[in-house]
């Protein structure tokens, strides 16, 4: 349970980065959402053995992290945290797919290994891009941008409530589990029955607390719309940002710069 809380508090930390004041932070949220979307689409559109083609795409997260002055150790830790999940999904690839795909000297590398590596790379890239989007924009503003891009308000408000609710649930979970640990004197008394009633209580308390939160929101003038931190106007810089990144992704995806570079070199030194 404690792990949940730490993860959620970390999520709040991510939101805090969104209050930075760099150029990337200042870009129109819609533009950032679109560019991230293009990036993710380009990355996941590769076939399962692709590695070379993905490498140039690392440029985007690296540039964004540097320009937004995000703390690299923090993001790296977040990425490491998701590693087990990806490995869980891809663990069987090397076992199932044993056809040799590459040969490095006398070592044969099977297709399974390559596809696992590719999966890891694609996951890092896409999840990294999403984290960077939240850390430079903030969840509320992202939802607002989605709304302005045409997503119905019902969905975006639901999304926001879900996001808020997650914090509440985690905090209540921590409280309940702490209380239970204290009374169960260590690790005994953790039967399935006590777990059941714990969950029941947890849901009830979370629901009550969510209702109280809703009341306080109402009394601060909430009328069903969330308002983000920035009121934005679409600037030239935003347009440049959108076009340059989109074109870059398109070029990377279609031209495969690594191969291009390779053929250029072989062309230059025949």
């Amino acid at each position: 349970m404690n792990a949940i809380t730490t993860a959620v508090i970390d999520l709040k930390q991510l939101e805090l980065f969104a209050q930075g004041d760099t150029q990337v932070h200042g870009r129109d949220a819609r533009v950032k959402v679109l560019v991230t979307l293009f990036f993710i689409l380009s990355v996941i559109s590769y076939h399962r053995y692709e590695i070379n083609g993905l490498l140039p795409f690392t440029l985007f997260p690296i540039i964004m992290v540097c320009r937004a002055e995000l703390p690299i150790p923090y993001l790296a830790r977040k990425m490491l945290l998701i590693c087990p999940f990806i490995l869980l999904i891809g663990a069987f690839n090397p076992l199932l797919d044993r056809s040799t795909l590459w040969q490095v000297g006398s070592i044969e590398i099977s297709g399974g290994c390559i596809s696992l590596l590719s999966l890891l790379l694609r996951s890092f890239l896409t999840i990294g891009a999403a984290l960077i989007l939240v850390a430079t924009t903030g969840f509320t503003t992202i939802c607002q941008a989605l709304e302005r891009l045409g997503m119905p308000e019902v969905f975006t408000v639901q999304l926001l409530f879900l996001h808020r609710y997650l914090f509440v649930l985690a905090e209540e979970a921590e409280r309940a589990s702490r209380a239970r640990e204290l009374r169960s004197c260590g690790s005994t008394g953790r039967g399935i029955g006590s777990f059941g009633s714990l969950t029941g209580h947890l849901l009830l308390r979370t629901w009550q607390r969510a209702e109280r939160i809703h009341t306080t929101m109402l009394s601060r003038g909430f009328t069903g719309q969330f308002h983000g931190q920035r009121r934005e106007r679409f600037s030239h810089a935003d347009l440049t940002f959108l076009i340059s990144w989109s074109v870059t992704f398109l070029l990377m995806r279609t031209m495969e710069p690594a191969t291009l570079l390779g053929s250029f070199i072989t062309g230059a030194f025949p």
Binding site: E15, R212, I213, T215, T216
Partner: peptide, 9 residues
């Protein structure tokens, strides 16, 4: 106060 505060900062 916990029922009023839900934002990050």
């Amino acid at each position: 106060p916990d029922s009023q505060l839900f934002s990050a900062s």
